[in-house]
Design a protein around this nucleic acid. Structure first.
Length: 495
RNA sequence: GGUCGGAUGGCCGAGUGGCUAGGCAGAGCUCUGCAAAAGCUCGUACAGCGGUUCGAAUCCGCUUUCGACCUCCA
C-alpha cells in the first residue's frame, strides 16, 4: 500500500508530494556522525527522526535503501590539522583506533535508542578511491584547480556556468562573489574564499594520508558524502537528510560537487532536522549548558533532578516535530515520562483486556477507524510525529474507558478492537520504535514476590483489616512500588 | 555585521485566515473502605505595537527576544 506522502523540501522551502525516482523504491542518504568523540545528544535526535522516517517509508510499502556514513577522516581543525589525527595524538592512539572506539560507542547509543541499522553504513576512509575518481571528474569538467598538490573547487566558475550555488542554503551569489575582496589575503592557496578543498596535500606530521595523482594527502571534508551517495544510491537519488547546521557549507558543497562532477543535482528532496536546546539556550560546552545521553540516563547532571530511561528520552523527542527546535528541561522530561508511562500501561491493558466485543458492526467502529486514519495522515504530512502521537493518545483514552466500563465493549466490534490493537502496536513498536523500559527491575522473582504479597494483602482485605492493608500498600510505596486497587483486582507498578 | 528560522496557556508542544491538538501540572465530579489509577467536565494562550480583512495565533510592517548558518558542528 503506497500512501501519498508530503515532505518539506529545504530546496524549495515548501511541502511537496513525495515521488520517488523509481516506483516503489527510495534511496535515502543521511549525514552520519564524525567519530572523534562521544555522540552528541542532538545527533541522537536527528538519527531518531530519520529512523522514524525510514520505518514509515517501509511501512508505506517502499523498498528503502538507507545510507548513513561514518566520517572517520577529512574534517579540518582550526589549525589545519586533521581532526582525527589530533584526537589520536591527544589520546596516544592510532587514528583508526580512535575512530573504532567512537564508532562502537555510536552504534551502542543507536541501539539504546532502538533505531534500525541503515542498509549501508560506509566509512570515508574506505572510499578514498571513489573520492579521488570524483575529484578527477570535477577537474575534467573544469570546475576545480590544482594548487601545490591540493585541489580546490572553483565556485565562481561553477556559478558562471549557471549552476545554482547557494540555492539550498539561501546564500546570495553576489555576496559570495563580492566577499572575496576583503578576505582574499587570508585565503592562502584558494583563488576565492568560497572555494573549498577537494583534496589536501598532507603535511609531514599528518597521520592519515593516501596517494593520489596530485599529492600524498587526504580528501576534503564535503567530498565523502558526495562520493558515497553516488556510489550506493546513484548520481540522482530521492532523499538527503541531516541537521540544518549542515546546510551550509556542507550540503551546499555536496550539491556543487555532484553537479560539478556529472551535471546532475544529487537529491530531489532535502530534509533538515532542527536543533535541541537545553533550558531554552543552545547547548554549549564552554558555558556548561550541555548534557550527554549518558548523563540524561543516569541523572548525573546539574540540569536534571533524576535519570530518564532511553525510551522516555525518545518519547520526549517524539513530542516535537523534526523541523522544530526542541527545548530540554527537567520539567518537560518528567512530563514526558508520565505520558510515556500512560501509553505503555494502555498497551498492556489492550494486550490483557478481554471483553464481550460485538460480532456485528459496533457504533464506535467509525470513531476508531477515523482516529486510525487521522493518525496515519499525520504521518503522511511531513512525518508529523507529534500530531500522530496526539491521535495515539485519543486511542489511549478510549482503551481506558473500555477497561473502566465507561464505554461498553459491545459498542465495538471484534474486528475494530483487533484493528485498534494492531494500529497501536504498529505506531509504537514498528514506527516510533519505543518499548517499555520503565520497569527494568521487573524480574521473575520480583513478580513472584509481588504476587505473594498481594495475595496476602487480599486475604487481609477480605477481613476488612484496612490498617494492615494500608500498611502493606504504604510500605510498598516507600520501596518504590505503587499498588492500585481496581474492580478486577489489584495491580502494581514501579513508581 | 550579513543571511535564515522561531516567539502559543503554569511547563513542554501541534496548529497558517473563522471549527477542542496532545502530554504534564491545576480545579470539580464519578468509581472506591481510604488511596492510587482511570474516565468525564472545566479554566488559564497565541511576545509587543501598528496594518490588511466581515473575521488574524495564522497574512504584512516595525520593535523586543531566542536560535541556526556565515568557521568543525545533528
Amino acid at each position: 500500500m503506497i500512501r501519498e506522502i508530503k515532505v518539506f523540501n529545504s530546496l524549495k522551502k515548501e511541502k511537496e508530494v513525495f515521488q520517488p525516482i523509481q516506483q516503489g523504491r527510495v534511496g535515502m542518504y543521511v549525514c552520519g556522525p564524525t567519530v572523534y568523540s562521544d555522540v552528541h545528544l542532538g545527533n541522537c535526535r536527528t538519527f531518531v527522526s530519520f529512523d522514524i522516517i525510514y520505518r514509515y517509508l517501509m511501512y508505506c510499502g517502499y523498498k528503502v535503501r538507507y545510507v548513513r556514513n561514518i566520517t572517520d577522516v577529512g574534517h579540518l581543525l582550526d589549525d589545519g590539522e586533521d581532526r582525527m589525527s589530533r584526537g589520536a595524538k591527544l589520546d596516544q592512539l592510532e587514528p583508526m583506533e580512535v575512530a573504532q572506539r567512537y564508532t562502537i560507542g555510536f552504534h551502542d547509543m543507536m541501539r539504546i535508542f532502538n533505531t534500525k541499522s541503515p542498509s549501508i553504513e560506509p566509512r570515508a576512509t574506505g572510499h578514498i578511491i571513489e573520492q579521488v575518481t570524483m575529484i578527477q571528474d570535477i577537474l575534467d569538467r573544469g570546475f576545480a584547480y590544482v594548487k601545490d598538490g591540493s585541489v580546490y573547487f572553483n565556485t565562481p566558475k561553477f556559478i558562471e556556468a549557471g549552476y545554482p550555488y547557494g540555492a539550498l542554503s539561501g546564500r546570495v551569489i553576489e555576496e559570495l562573489l563580492t566577499e572575496s575582496r576583503d578576505n582574499l589575503k587570508n585565503q592562502d592557496e584558494k583563488n576565492h574564499p568560497s572555494d573549498f578543498a577537494l583534496w589536501i596535500r598532507a603535511s609531514e606530521e599528518h597521520l592519515m594520508r593516501w596517494p593520489s595523482p596530485w599529492s600524498v594527502g587526504f580528501p576534503g571534508w564535503h567530498l565523502e558524502c558526495s562520493a558515497m551517495s553516488t556510489k550506493y544510491l546513484g548520481q540522482e537519488f530521492d532523499i538527503h537528510g541531516g541537521g540544518n547546521d549542515l546546510k551550509f557549507p556542507h550540503h551546499e558543497n555536496e550539491v556543487a560537487q555532484s553537479m560539478g562532477a556529472c551535471g546532475k543535482a544529487p537529491a530531489h528532496y532535502w530534509l533538515h532536522t532542527n536543533m535541541l536546546l537545553l533550558n531554552g539556550r543552545k547547548m554549549s560546552k564552554s558555558e556548561g549548558n550541555t548534557i550527554s545521553p549518558t548523563e540524561l540516563f543516569s541523572g548525573n547532571s546539574p540540569h536534571i533532578s533524576k535519570g530518564f530511561s532511553p525510551m522516555t528520552v525518545k518519547f520526549f523527542f517524539l513530542q516535537a516535530h523534526y523541523r522544530s527546535p526542541q527545548d530540554i528541561t527537567d520539567e518537560a522530561l518528567k512530563a514526558a515520562e508520565k505520558g510515556f508511562r500512560r501509553l505503555m500501561e494502555a498497551l498492556r491493558t489492550i494486550d490483557q483486556f478481554d471483553g464481550q466485543f460485538s460480532a456485528e458492526r459496533g457504533r464506535r467502529d467509525g470513531e476508531i477507524s477515523g482516529i486510525i486514519e487521522t493518525c496515519l495522515s499525520h504521518m503522511d504530512d511531513d512525518f508529523n510525529v507529534p500530531n500522530a502521537l496526539a491521535s495515539v493518545f485519543e486511542l489511549v483514552s478510549l482503551i481506558n474507558s473500555i477497561k473502566d466500563g465507561h464505554i461498553p465493549a459491545g459498542e465495538i466490534s471484534h474486528n475494530s478492537w483487533q484493528a485498534l490493537k494492531e494500529h497501536l502496536g504498529l505506531m509504537t513498536s514498528q514506527i516510533f520504535g519505543v518499548y517499555n523500559d520503565l520497569d527494568e527491575s521487573g524480574s521473575k522473582s520480583v513478580d513472584r514476590l509481588m504476587n505473594l504479597i498481594l495475595e496476602l494483602r487480599a486475604d487481609v482485605r477480605e477481613r476488612k483489616d484496612w490498617v494492615a492493608s494500608d500498611k502493606i500498600r504504604d510500605s510498598l510505596k516507600e520501596a518504590g512500588i505503587l499498588v492500585k486497587d481496581g474492580k478486577e483486582g489489584t495491580e502494581w507498578s514501579f513508581i
